[in-house]
Nucleic acid binder design. Structure first.
Length: 996
RNA sequence: GGGCGCUUAGCUCAGCGGUAGAGCACUUCCUUGACAUGGAAGGGGUCAGAGGUUCAAUCCCUCUAGCGCCCACCA
């Protein structure tokens, strides 16, 4: 005897173990050797990661696809794995060192630190994988990969070396986005623009001196968001100030130390006379040219812009154009400090005014953080009388996406990928639809980015990651090799050939690893995490080995991911896949949206509105939920607010709703192009759906609905059974089609409707008299067998969405009837090819309408639920009579009728029931409120009349009749006739009521 | 400044050229032998606004308003 409800918590683990034991998710199963492959590579979550709603959505959708195709008989490989996530992971471990008050990574040294990270990974890096398993993700877990695995690392090295030899990877000294917190370069994509606007105001014209304390406070609050106007004095040919000043505006006063020119627009009448003249840089004293450059926008600031090539991307370009006029890169940054002159004036080398006074001034900004230096420069400028005014100014300030620190453009040596060259095949592949985006409109975003792509900065000044395979020799040569051994060998041989080393020296060196390493130091940088991710579709399949997996599963079938990583990941996989495999990495890219909180806000820890998928699955108490949410909120007032909001939103915490309900919710809400807003009530609704399926199965069990050997759905006779098999067929077709087109919500809804609204609400209800009416017979046996069969269809159809409850039910049902082996997860997918029996459809449809109509009349007119009613069929046609005879018991039971009669005229005082062409009557005389019935009829009649008016208006339109397709016109006529006949019947009844 | 998307029932969202749908919430009724995590019935929508195309527009086009996201180097 089955339990009354499905207990997800008790079952999920057991079911997962069965799949595992069965090897159900293994790719390349022997029984599928001849099957077509279907492959998805998982977007590898960070090893540091914790399952969030985005993962839940992403993996549910992938799992639906994998389970569907697996049931359809394909050889499915869902390739799992995790990403080493350079910055994120290094951060976690560094923080851990700090918390435990252990020496920091610098003190620890590179080797020990990296060891430490590996230890951390071994200990707690697998959490995310366990969490994915909880979701039911049917990955081939035996093939799990990690981006820093030996194999994948080899792939990375090989790719680096080859691209370098092809000139597609190079080292260059350029401005990069420097993250001062992590002390590393980052790529353009890791920079986010944040709008800043300050409030501080000051003007020299007011006469008040600059209040240093107020300035300090304002800057502490809003370090950015101000525009500062500086006066740069114009000098004549002899270096004498002419008395004229050129005013420049800047948001970054501290960079003025690195100014090397001022640019004005060539056509700007205000400044044309100054072009070619010089100005003196205050504080520093350096003379700089006023250059003409169209970059300068007369509308912006003062129209004259200071040029600081080493600290601004635009200025860098301007500097290049005007190098001859003295615009050069003057680096004021130091890698160790954010801004630091470190007491040496090396960078002023050759400058005109490096006198003692200057040294004193500069010493006052030396070694300070950028924002402190900024303040000091402002004050110095004010003291010199060169600060004209300060205004609040709204502008975008670049921040590191992980550190949230203000990014500093900084001139350094870094490694770059020539993305522009690699982008061309990636663009062509999508233009030619060799890879298609779903929804299609993301292609535009993809094109836009790739068409304007910049060189990709791939070196990171971190320790956790793939170290760049480049070795430097004392003679200036570099050796780019896949392994240390080959690099040293080549370096030594080359050294000998060049005469830099004697053969004997080379031999001695090669025997001493320490000296070797010291002589040919390896590039200390590691590669951007996304560099290895870009290889994921083929590195996980064994490349650079020519494995059979690579042969079989590449290109993969589809990639499922969020729009936020189209640039980071999708585009780069396209580039690398095409370059190294000469074939796209995936045929389709399905892009899904974001999961938001109930109000539509983006979930974030700092907002305290995140929802842990496992809390929905397993349930969580209010207190635990609050504790989790306020954990990372430092501000007490804010934490209290989050707690109060949470208490209001989830007064009782969250009940355990199970994985299946969460998954079904995510699928049902995954309409293309729209974000998913979390709705607990909706998830509860789907938990109820699982219960419904459970209870339908329980009903089957209680009514002897056991699977029958050799049950042939095509041989079924009873209209009721033929009807539901036809409907099942339609549902299977709809669901399959929707899944294959990535319309997950349509697929989910189609299953939902079939199971609940058709099978449970009608088929099982209509079958009750047969099952429970007492008479054994072929019809009962057939109905029992059909129900058992349809339930199997239901389990299969629903399995991709709700794998646990369906696998459990399938197993339970396997205990009776013909034995079956294996697991539901391996299929088969149900048939969708039963003939639709129109006659059965009409018959069942009529019964459904009749019962609904009777119920409706009863309810609206207020017939007491227990009233014993007779239904009279008026002038019944022979076919109506036959159907009514056949379904008498059912009608009685479902519509609560005690007697069925036939008559030529409706009994006095009866209420009409109009079903298609048939008229029935409920003789209610005394029991009913006549006035209520009159108004019900009036309402019905009015509704029909309105309908007719609409149809008539169309039919009266000659253009409509002339131009609309015939079947549309015919349909309108039919509708009109049907309405007229209903009106006639109801009006007749209405007039009879009037006589009472 | 470019690009993309959204605006449909109280809420959250489907639909998308030919009779407006779902879940939740709401109202009324029902503890009948699958299921109260249930059943039955019902109320509720000028499909943001204005034009246009069409025999026909919630759906296609244009504009307007509001909201959101992405990209962009503007002092």
């Amino acid at each position: 005897m089955m339990e009354k409800t499905f207990e997800a918590a008790a079952v999920e683990g057991r079911i997962a173990a069965r799949w595992e034991q069965e090897g159900a998710f293994r790719a390349g199963r022997a029984d599928r050797a001849d099957a077509a492959p279907f492959c998805i590579v998982i977007p590898p979550p960070n090893v540091t990661g914790n399952l969030h709603m985005g993962h839940a959505l992403n993996n549910t959708l992938q799992d639906i696809l994998c389970r569907y195709w697996r049931m359809k008989g394909r050889d499915v490989l869902w390739q799992p794995g995790t990403d080493h996530a350079g910055i994120a992971t290094q951060m976690v471990v560094e923080r851990q060192l700090m918390e435990r008050q252990e020496p920091d990574r610098r003190a620890m040294g590179r080797e020990k630190f990296v060891e430490r990270v590996w230890a951390w990974k071994a200990e707690s890096g697998g959490a995310i994988v366990a969490q994915l398993k909880r979701l039911g993700a049917s990955c081939d877990w035996s093939r799990e990969r990690f981006t820093l695995d030996a194999g994948l690392s080899r792939a990375v090295a090989k790719v680096f070396v080859q691209l370098h030899r092809e000139g597609l990877i190079y080292k260059a000294k350029r401005l990069v986005n420097w993250d001062p917190t992590f002390q590393t370069a980052i790529s353009d994509l890791e920079v986010v623009q944040v709008e800043c606007k300050g409030t501080f105001k000051w003007s020299r014209g007011d006469g008040a001196p600059l209040d240093e304390t107020a300035l300090g406070k304002a800057l502490a609050k809003d370090p950015n968001g101000h525009l500062y106007y500086f006066d740069y004095p114009v000098v004549d040919g002899r270096g004498e100030e002419t008395g004229e000043v050129l005013t420049v505006a800047t948001t970054r006063p501290e960079t003025m130390l690195g100014d090397s020119a001022v640019a004005v627009h060539p056509d700007d009448p205000r400044y044309r006379h100054l072009i070619g003249h010089k100005v003196r840089l205050p504080l520093v004293g350096r003379l700089m040219a006023v250059v003409a450059d169209e970059y300068s926008d007369p509308e912006m600031g003062t129209g004259a812009v200071k040029i600081t090539p080493a600290h601004d991307f635009d200025d860098f370009e301007v500097g290049r154009r005007h190098e001859a006029e003295g615009a050069r890169q003057i680096n004021i940054l130091d890698a160790e400090a954010n801004i630091s002159l470190k007491g040496n004036l090396a960078f002023f080398e050759g400058l005109e005014a490096a006198d003692h006074e200057l040294a004193r001034l500069l010493a006052s900004v030396d070694g300070f953080d950028r924002f402190e230096a900024r303040k000091r420069i402002i004050v110095l400028m004010a003291l010199e009388g060169r600060l004209q005014k300060i205004e609040p100014h709204q502008h975008m300030v670049p921040h590191g996406d992980r550190s949230n620190a203000v990014i500093e453009p900084w001139l350094t040596d870094q490694w770059y990928v020539d993305a522009k060259t690699l982008a061309q095949p990636a663009l062509a592949a999508v233009r030619e639809s060799r890879t298609r985006f779903v929804p299609r409109n993301w292609e535009k975003t993809y094109f836009e980015w790739l068409e304007n792509i910049q060189p990709w900065t791939i070196s990171r000044q971190l320790w956790w990651g793939h170290q760049i395979p480049v070795w430097y020799a004392p003679w200036g040569e570099i050796y780019v090799e896949e392994t240390e051994e080959t690099a040293y060998a080549r370096a030594l041989a080359d050294g000998v050939r060049r005469g830099a080393l004697s053969a004997r020296e080379a031999e001695r060196l090669s025997a001493e690893p320490t000296r070797l390493a010291a002589t040919f130091p390896r590039d200390p940088d590691v590669l951007d995490t996304w560099f290895s991710s870009a290889l994921w579709p083929f590195s996980t399949l064994g490349w650079p080995e020519a494995t059979k997996e690579l042969e079989r599963y590449y290109p993969t079938s589809v990639l499922v991911t969020g729009f936020d990583i189209i640039f980071f990941w999708v585009a780069r996989m396209m580039m690398m896949g095409l370059h190294f495999q000469h074939e796209v990495p995936f045929r389709d890219v399905y892009i899904h949206a974001l999961v938001r909180d109930g109000k539509g806000a983006k979930m974030s820890k700092s907002k305290g509105n995140v929802m842990d998928p496992l809390d929905i699955i397993d349930g969580v108490t209010l207190d635990a939920l609050i504790a989790k949410r306020i954990e990372s909120i430092a501000n007490k007032a804010e934490a209290a607010k989050v707690a109060a909001d949470t208490r209001r939103e989830f007064p009782k915490g969250i009940p355990a709703l199970g994985t299946d309900a969460l998954r079904f919710f995510l699928a049902a809400m995954a309409a293309q192009g729209r974000d998913v807003k979390l709705s607990l009530s909706r998830i509860e609704g789907y938990r109820n759906f699982a219960t419904k399926v459970w209870n339908a199965s329980r009903f089957a069990e209680m009514n002897g609905c056991v699977r029958v050997v050799g049950f042939d759905p095509d041989a079924v006779r009873a209209p009721l059974n033929r009807w539901i098999l036809g409907e099942a067929s339609k549902a299977v077709a709809e669901t399959s089609e929707a899944i294959e087109a990535f319309r997950f919500n349509d697929a989910a809804n189609s299953v939902y409707r079939f199971v609940w609204s058709l099978f449970c609400d009608w088929h099982l209800e209509l079958a009750k008299p047969v099952l429970q009416g007492g008479a054994e017979g072929p019809e009962r046996a057939e109905t029992q067998a059909t129900i058992a069969y349809v339930l199997d269809v239901v389990y299969a159809l629903l399995h991709p969405f709700m794998p646990f409850v369906t696998e459990e039910l399938w197993t339970i049902k396997g205990e009776d009837g013909p034995p079956r082996a294996g697991v539901l997860a391996l299929g088969p997918w149900p048939r969708a090819d039963f003939a639709i029996d129109r006659a059965a459809e009409a018959e069942i449809g009529w019964i459904i309408e009749l019962v609904s109509e009777i119920r409706s009349v009863r309810s609206e007119v207020g017939v007491p639920a227990g009233a014993q009613l007779t239904l009279t069929l008026v002038q019944a046609s022979s076919s109506v009579a036959r159907i009514v005879e056949a379904w008498g018991d059912t009608i009685k039971r479902l519509a609560r009728i005690v007697r069925l009669e036939f008559a030529e005229t409706p009994p006095a005082g009866s209420l009409p029931i109009v079903v298609r062409d048939a008229l029935a009557a409920l003789p209610l005389g005394g029991i009913v409120d006549i006035e209520a019935e009159k108004s019900r009829l009036d309402k019905e009649i009015a509704r029909e009349r309105q309908e007719i008016a609409k149809v008539d208006a169309k039919l009266a339109n000659p253009d409509f009749v002339a131009r609309a397709p015939e079947e549309i016109i015919a349909e309108h006529h039919e509708r009109r006739e049907a309405s007229l006949s209903r009106i006639a019947k109801m009006e007749a009844a209405r007039s009879r009521l009037d006589q009472i």
